[in-house]
Amino acid sequence: MHPTRLIAFATLAAALATPAVAKDKLKAAGTQTTVAQYLPPALTADNTWKLDLSDGGRVVIQLRPDIAPKMVERVKTLTGQGFYNGLTFHRVIEGFMAQGGDPKGTGEGGSSLPDVPAEFNDLPHVRGAVAAARAADDNSANSQFYVMLQPNLKLDRHYTVFGRVVSGMPYVDAIQRGEPPTNPTRIVRASIGNGAPTAMQSTSTSTLAPAAPPAGSIGQ
């Protein structure tokens, strides 16, 4: 490895081990563009997305409006409308990811709102990462999302990562597998922060091209 890279890596490792001085260390090493990636902001109620699942668990996700503001705003808007209540995880691949957020349950549905422009970023597709599913068009994300069951860094900068599971990952692991599953796991209620979940909403009739996360053109 080139000596300069070794120095930068050592500085980064030291910074991550001592959060109080992390930003200064990263800046000195010339890696300030990765500060947001490795040092997420404090978890706040207004950026906490809670999914109560039919398998009996609650999944808590830290949203990242500092990295993907448009997609986070979309999730908050739809959650406030009760859009996600009752929807299934319709595409769940062992060792890969669990995809949900489609009112049709086929991978072709979305909300009645316009698609969200791509916000590709440096957040990695590690276990627990939450990202926006889309069709072939980079700017076709809408309501669908997926949660990574295992890391797959080949997807980085091809999909908008907008959050990460901070609690309840065992419940994500318990989501029923299949494309679609025979007895799919559902989102019973979705809520933001301390707000009360809204009542179940009727499904949208809008149609999108199949929203393929990760496995299609890029591969697992």
Rank of each mutant, 00 (worst) to 15 (best):
205 T>I: 08
203 T>L: 07
78 L>Y: 00
59 V>I: 04
144 Q>F: 02
1 M>Y: 12
65 P>C: 08
178 G>R: 02
123 L>Q: 14
210 P>L: 11
28 A>I: 03
29 A>H: 10
178 G>L: 03
137 D>T: 00
2 H>G: 10
185 T>D: 09
127 R>I: 02
215 A>N: 13
201 Q>C: 08
218 I>Q: 10
172 V>S: 04
161 V>W: 04
174 A>V: 04
32 Q>I: 05
156 D>C: 12
220 Q>H: 11
51 L>K: 08
39 L>D: 09
187 I>H: 01
188 V>G: 11
59 V>H: 10
122 D>N: 14
100 G>I: 02
188 V>D: 13
36 A>I: 00
140 S>R: 06
131 A>D: 10
110 G>L: 05
52 D>A: 11
158 H>Q: 15
202 S>Q: 12
33 T>N: 12
27 K>Q: 14
89 F>C: 13
152 N>R: 03
167 S>K: 05
152 N>A: 10
158 H>R: 12
156 D>T: 02
36 A>Q: 10
57 G>H: 13
115 D>L: 00
26 L>H: 06
152 N>Q: 13
143 S>C: 05
53 L>C: 12
68 A>G: 05
27 K>E: 15
39 L>W: 08
186 R>V: 09
2 H>C: 11
2 H>P: 15
41 P>H: 03
159 Y>M: 11
145 F>M: 04
20 A>N: 13
214 P>Y: 01
149 L>W: 06
51 L>W: 10
106 T>N: 09
71 M>W: 01
191 S>W: 01
48 T>Y: 01
206 S>M: 06
39 L>A: 06
100 G>A: 09
82 G>R: 03
190 A>M: 06
107 G>Q: 07
118 A>F: 01
108 E>I: 04
54 S>R: 07
13 A>F: 00
152 N>Y: 09
63 L>G: 04
153 L>P: 15
193 G>V: 02
164 R>K: 14
22 A>W: 13
149 L>G: 06
26 L>T: 14
52 D>G: 08
187 I>N: 01
160 T>I: 07
176 Q>L: 02
159 Y>Q: 11
163 G>L: 02
124 P>T: 07
65 P>Q: 08
161 V>D: 06
33 T>H: 08
201 Q>K: 15
75 V>A: 13
33 T>M: 10
88 T>A: 10
172 V>F: 03
36 A>G: 08
115 D>F: 04
33 T>K: 12
185 T>V: 07
92 V>R: 06
214 P>V: 00
111 S>N: 07
154 K>F: 12
160 T>V: 05
9 F>V: 15
150 Q>L: 07
186 R>S: 14
8 A>C: 09
216 G>M: 05
31 T>L: 15
171 Y>P: 07
84 Y>V: 02
22 A>L: 08
73 E>P: 04
58 R>Y: 04
31 T>C: 15
150 Q>T: 09
220 Q>S: 11
186 R>T: 15
95 G>D: 08
24 D>H: 09
96 F>E: 13
138 D>W: 02
5 R>P: 06
100 G>D: 09
179 E>L: 11
117 P>Y: 03
87 L>Y: 06
194 N>I: 01
205 T>R: 13
16 L>C: 12
119 E>M: 05
103 P>A: 11
216 G>T: 00
175 I>P: 05
16 L>G: 14
40 P>G: 05
129 A>V: 01
118 A>M: 03
172 V>L: 03
123 L>T: 00
